[in-house]
Design a binder for these strands. Structure first.
Length: 287
DNA sequence: TAGTGAGGTTCCGTTACTTCA
DNA sequence: ACTGAAGTAACGGAACCTCAC
């Protein structure tokens, strides 16, 4: 079984919870349940672009001035095999990274950043020389931060955007592509965790509510047994649930507005009051 | 107009590597 | 120095979409 938490409509207060099997085809069979959800993890500050629009948009739509500022300076030779740097127009080793967003200072302030880049570069070159079967290279903090900022703008990339980003970061386009894939996966995972937590709380609340209603029902039954003439409301009135305020009909009774009969047990007073105060609300909740 | 294959993309599960306690 | 856990880059395959024919 597979539970799918559809959070694509990030702007919507509703959450689509779907339960189905695995695989894309099986998504057709998923059962969707809408739940009011006040929680929306703000991992994606934008609505994901439909696939049909993803590859058709141009790089000029990215809205990232740091991508279009014409600054070709790049300080990252990290993870970049020399033969793959063909797309670079002006490789300037050792130059500063053109970061123009707010976290630049924080990222730059991180100690050992240059050393880290150097280490990564060293690793990259070492592994290239070793010819390892699988290259696993750590992105530098700056590269990660840059990608992160880009992800905030668009969580998917069209080919142009991918190329531009790769160029900016001195990475292979495939690396950028993979990073975005993994980033989307992480976002989804976190959102799923948040959704699960919310559903868990919903479940707990409903369980508690159910327990309370059961208890209330028990008390009402006991009341009916011990005081058979108490709460002799018309049937139309008694069909209303005091807790959920739902009634079978909209008929109200003047008896409901009456004070509790004299001699009613003390524990019945709160129930009666609750019942009485909820009476006016039953006008539209009948179904 | 419907069918089909190619090319490209995303998603998903998994693997392999790195870092850190 | 060794080890296990966590994080994450990278991979392969399946599904899907678009487009040309």
């Amino acid at each position: 079984m597979r539970i799918r938490l559809d959070s694509k409509d990030s702007g919507s207060p509703n959450m689509g919870l779907s339960i189905g099997g695995g695989g894309r085809d099986e998504e057709k069979d998923e059962v969707r349940v809408s739940v009011d959800r006040p929680i929306q993890l703000d991992l994606l500050p934008f609505a994901p672009v439909p696939r049909s629009q993803v590859s058709s948009s141009s790089s000029s739509q990215m809205g990232l001035q740091w991508l279009n500022n014409g600054n070709s300076e790049r300080g990252f030779d990290v993870n970049r095999p020399p033969e793959e740097a063909v797309e670079e127009s002006s490789p300037s080793a050792g130059s500063s990274f053109p970061m123009e967003f707010s976290f630049t200072a924080a990222a730059a302030a991180a100690d050992g950043e240059a050393a880290e880049a150097a280490r990564a570069s060293s690793r990259a070159s070492d592994e290239d020389e070793m010819g390892s079967t699988r290259k696993k290279l750590r992105l530098s903090k700056e590269q990660s931060a840059f990608l992160e900022e880009s992800f905030k703008e668009h969580n998917t990339l069209n080919p142009k955007q991918k190329l531009v980003l790769a160029k900016q970061l001195n990475l292979r386009p495939r690396q950028v592509e993979v990073w975005f894939q993994n980033r989307r996966a992480r976002t989804k995972l976190k959102q799923t965790e948040v959704d699960c937590e919310y559903l868990k709380r919903c479940c707990e609340t409903l369980t508690e509510e159910n327990r309370r209603l059961q208890k209330e029902l028990q008390e009402l039954r006991a009341l009916k047994t011990t005081h058979p003439y108490y709460m002799q409301f018309p049937a139309t009135t008694l069909t209303m649930c005091p807790s959920c305020e739902r009634v079978a009909t909209s008929t109200t009774s003047s008896a409901a507005a009456a004070a509790p009969p004299a001699g009613a047990p003390p524990q019945a007073k709160p129930l009666f009051d609750a019942f009485k105060t909820r009476q006016p609300n039953n006008k539209s909740t009948a179904s």
